[in-house]
Design a protein around this nucleic acid. Structure first.
Lengths: 110, 110
DNA sequence: TTGTTATATTGCAATATTACGATAAATGTA
DNA sequence: TACATTTATCGTAATATTGCAATATAACAA
């Protein structure tokens, strides 16, 4: 049905899923990596960086912003986007924790 | 159009996106976390753990396996699934790297 | 005000995803 | 062999996502 049964899972699980889903697209990964590369904030030159229409990129930026992965501040006519440090850190910790737990368990299956 | 323009991005970006997309669903996160909790491998009791139909869970397991996040080995009538350590580590590193890069740059934007 | 530039929104078409019942396939057991 | 158990696959319905052209909005400049 294309609809996810969110009620069936914990708040944490749903939140993590939303965060990951927001990044889980090559265009949005490219945007995140571009923001990372151009130290200073970036505005609309992402459009000239990626081979996607301006409308499409605006949509991807919106999704990233909604998920709290980036933030944008108006800068005259342009808009300055940059990464939300905390959220990236949260994701880094999530996977690090799992990784560590796997390493600590000495089960020899599979 | 619902179709992603994969040709426009790097192999790495596409691969990362596929990995993240495979996890980016509350049911699949729940599966991963369950696999993590029950030290030893798990088989079909994920079905009794989650309020989803067996067919649905089998589908989610397939996606996780296709993405290389879990692996499964036949164990009699049952199938024993467990996490693929390396892939989780790869993701942990991906976000750690980004997180570190953000911390190292002293730009004061946004 | 008028024009220009930068971004956002709308409306659509094409695909993808999610979920599940029904059924198949595989393996072990009586 | 016949049956039970476990997992996979198929088919289908409902919904979500992706991408873009067209258009709207916002802010500045002349």
């Amino acid at each position: 049905m294309g609809i996810t049964k969110s009620e069936s899972f914990t708040v944490q699980q749903n939140e993590t899923a939303l965060l990951l889903k927001a990044i889980a697209h090559p265009a949005r990964i490219a945007i995140v990596e571009h923001l990372l590369k151009v130290q200073s904030c970036i505005c609309g030159d992402i459009v000239s960086e990626l081979p996607l229409a301006q409308a499409t990129i605006s949509q991807h930026l919106k999704e990233l912003k909604n998920a709290g992965i980036i933030k944008g501040s108006v800068e005259g006519t342009a808009i300055c986007y940059c990464l939300e440090k905390e959220v990236i850190e949260k994701l880094a910790q999530y996977f690090s924790t799992i990784s560590n737990q796997i390493n600590n368990q000495k089960s020899t299956c599979c």
